[in-house]
Structure formats: structure tokens, C-alpha cells
């Protein structure tokens, strides 16, 4: 059986996270590193087991990886999640969402929400100009009214409009 590269990459990413926590823990005092090391090493063993399983899909690890509640599973997500997703489409969605964040960073919430909603509906949804424009205005206004007026939160106004960036 051929290993799934996406699956492998995701497991490797988790492995890196866990390794980071383990390695960094050694620089702390004994008590402060106890739980991170206990949890880190236990998780590391499990990640390695899953990684071996994913490189050699039919292995002893898979035999151990029993699933006695398969009929009683908690469905945590939408049923169509297993559909094969084209990498290109995923990349486009990533760009949209990161782009949205970048716009918020530069122009603040009200403008970015209106722009993102309009652009997403027009380009991805292929809806009419009027519908896209109307939705964009309504969503942006709703966010402004609920969060800024009703609840008193100060929405981020964007670095281009003088908003101070908090330390990262």
C-alpha cells in the first residue's frame, strides 16, 4: 500500500511540535519540566508509532491500532470531509483566508470584511454584483453594530489607519 504524503506530512508536523516541547523542556528547572517531559515523551512514542504505521501501512502498529467502538463513533465533523481535496483548491482557500487576515491587519475589520465578502462572493461564488455588494455591506454593518456599538468592543482599525500593533 502506498503511503499518503499529506497524512505523512501532518504526522511529521506533530512530531516536530512534540520534539520542540521535549527539547525546550530540558532548559527548565526540574519541577517545571516534569509534566512537559512526561506528556511529551508519551506523545512522542505514540506519534512515532503512527508514523511507522503511515510509512508501512500494514504493520504491527496497525494491528495494535484497534478500534472497538467503530460503530459508536462520535461524528465530529461534516460527513463529506473525506472527499478527496485537490491540493490546488486547498491552496486557493489558504490564500483567501490569509489574504483576509492581511487585509484586516492593514485596513481594519469593517473595510476588510466588506472587501473580503464582496470579493469571495464575486470570484469564488460567482454571484451577481448586486448580491455580492449587498451582502458585503450587510455583514460589515452587522459586525460593526453588534461588536462596536452594542457590545462596546473596539474593532481593529488597521495599521494604515494608525492602529498600534501589539508586540508579537
Amino acid at each position: 500500500m502506498k503511503a499518503d504524503r499529506g497524512r505523512l506530512a501532518f504526522t511529521a508536523l506533530i512530531l516536530l511540535f512534540v520534539l520542540f516541547f521535549i527539547v525546550t523542556s530540558f532548559s527548565y528547572e526540574h519541577d517545571a519540566r516534569l509534566i512537559p517531559l512526561l506528556v511529551g515523551f508519551s506523545t512522542l512514542v505514540l506519534v512515532l508509532a503512527v508514523l511507522v504505521n503511515e510509512i508501512h501501512p500494514v504493520s504491527i502498529i496497525e494491528k495494535m491500532n484497534v478500534d472497538w467502538t467503530k460503530d459508536l463513533k462520535v461524528q465530529e465533523s461534516s460527513p463529506k470531509k473525506k472527499e478527496k481535496v485537490a491540493a490546488k483548491k486547498l491552496l486557493i482557500i489558504i490564500c483567501w483566508i490569509f489574504g483576509f487576515f492581511l487585509f484586516i491587519f492593514l485596513f481594519g475589520f469593517p473595510i476588510s470584511i466588506a472587501l473580503f465578502t464582496f470579493a469571495f462572493l464575486k470570484i469564488e461564488g460567482k454571484v451577481s454584483w448586486a448580491k455580492a455588494l449587498l451582502t458585503a455591506v450587510i455583514v460589515s454593518a452587522a459586525v460593526f453594530v453588534i461588536f462596536e456599538w452594542a457590545m462596546g468592543f473596539g474593532l481593529f482599525e488597521g495599521v494604515l489607519f494608525g492602529e498600534i500593533i501589539p508586540p508579537i
Binding site: V18, G40, S42, V47, A49, N65, D67, K73, E76
Partner: peptide, 16 residues
């Protein structure tokens, strides 16, 4: 054990 995905992956997620 009961949630979606394998038992090992559930434990990994909990550890993470």
C-alpha cells in the same frame, strides 16, 4: 477510545 479516528491518534491529540 470513543472519539473519531484511531485510539492512538486520539491520545496524540490529547497529549498535544
Amino acid at each position: 477510545l470513543a472519539s473519531m479516528g484511531s485510539f492512538l491518534k486520539g491520545l496524540i491529540a490529547g497529549g498535544a
